[in-house]
Amino acid sequence: MLIILSELLDAMLAQACEGHPIETCGVIAGPIGSKRPTRMIPMRNVAQSETFFQFDPQEQLRAWREMEVLGEEPCVIYHSHTQSTGYPSRDDIRLASEPQAHYVILCTAENAGAPVRSFRIVDGKVTEENIQAVAQYPTALIG
């Protein structure tokens, strides 16, 4: 299950709507091992496509370095689907490289189901998980 601040869900959705019909993307960092996504870093989609996304390599380097310095990891990796349902595509599965991350897909296509879905993608195997939006993280998760 993905437990996430509702303000972060809203921010990912707002970015997806604003970028529509181009796919938008980004990462939400959190302290290593905490399972607590806290710091959202929107990324430029260098593909600028309605059917493909790729993090700007320069922005990705900066973000990954920053996470290393701050003792964080990518908790959530998100992108939008603007023409299809929010299920991982073949490329999403093939290129998934962070087994500990929640892969969130924002769907801005019309009549294509839920606007936000979350998945684990490990060794090519996709598992959908529930999303619980919270106003703040329960104390049990902190520390």
Binding site: C25, V27, M43, A47, T51, F52, F53, Q54, F55, P57, Q60, L61, W64, R65, I77, H79, P88, S89, R90, D91, D92, L95, A96, S97, E98
Partner: peptide, 10 residues
């Protein structure tokens, strides 16, 4: 030298 898998998909 830093190696990073691109974050990409469809």
């Amino acid at each position: 030298v830093t190696i990073l898998p691109a974050v990409a998909g469809g």
